[in-house]
């Protein structure tokens, strides 16, 4: 399995964290431009390290004519938000969708009662990752982001509240924790299948 990207949205509908591992391969071959080398800067500003693998030449060329990372995040939020509301209308108000897939990717979704939304996008063969997203929330987000900001809050005399613009989420502990957690999980899943 392959993980393409991971997003967290807060209750104010703001994207507070983005991480991309592989450039998503959702653009079909037909859309892919034939010229390989490109002059435009392929990956504009993003809080991202190219995790496991280096981004290859073909990935970069695919990037042409594609949306920026921020626009991607907005679209993903839109999809998830509408889908969730529709699911709830069709069923009970505490129901939620777990994932959806297309021909090219699968989107996994987990929402906490505090309206934090965790989204992970993977290839289509991946089994459900709801448990994994829950673990990221419990073991990484609460542990490193919430607890750490409590400390920052005390220093600031209880003025700062929540993470406007995602400030404070992408701290080192959280980044490292996420990275190693994902690597471990991938290995585990590969071993068990």
């Amino acid at each position: 399995m392959t993980i393409y990207s991971f997003y967290i949205f807060d209750r104010h509908c703001e994207c507070i964290y983005i991480k991309q591992w592989h450039e998503r391969e959702r653009a079909g071959a037909a859309i892919r431009p034939t010229t390989s080398a490109s002059t435009t800067s392929p990956i504009p500003d993003k809080r991202v390290s190219a995790g496991g693998k280096q981004i290859t030449e073909t990935d970069i060329s695919m990037r042409n004519g594609r949306l920026s990372v921020q626009d991607d995040a907005k679209l993903i939020f839109g999809v998830v938000f509408s889908l969730r509301n529709m699911v709830r209308k069709l069923s009970t108000p505490d129901d939620n969708f777990i994932s959806y897939r297309t021909n090219n990717y699968k989107l996994h979704y987990y929402e906490t009662p505090t309206n934090l939304k965790f989204v992970m996008i993977t290839d289509v063969k991946t089994n459900n990752l709801r448990v994994v997203l829950h673990q990221i929330y419990v073991n990484l987000y609460v542990e490193y982001v919430i607890a750490r900001n409590l400390y920052v809050l005390m220093l600031n005399n209880y003025i700062a509240v929540e993470h406007s613009g995602g400030e404070g989420v992408a701290c080192e502990l959280f980044e490292l924790g996420l990275e190693s957690f994902v690597v471990r999980t991938l290995k585990l899943i590969e071993l068990t299948t």
Binding site: T114, L116, H134, I146, L150, L153
Partner: peptide, 23 residues
């Protein structure tokens, strides 16, 4: 009350993470 409020905003996440309750 204000200090408590700021604690509460975060403590709820800890509560949810530890108990994983139903709504």
């Amino acid at each position: 009350d204000k200090m408590g409020y700021n604690i509460g905003l975060r403590l709820i996440e800890d509560y949810l993470a530890k108990t994983a309750p139903q709504r």
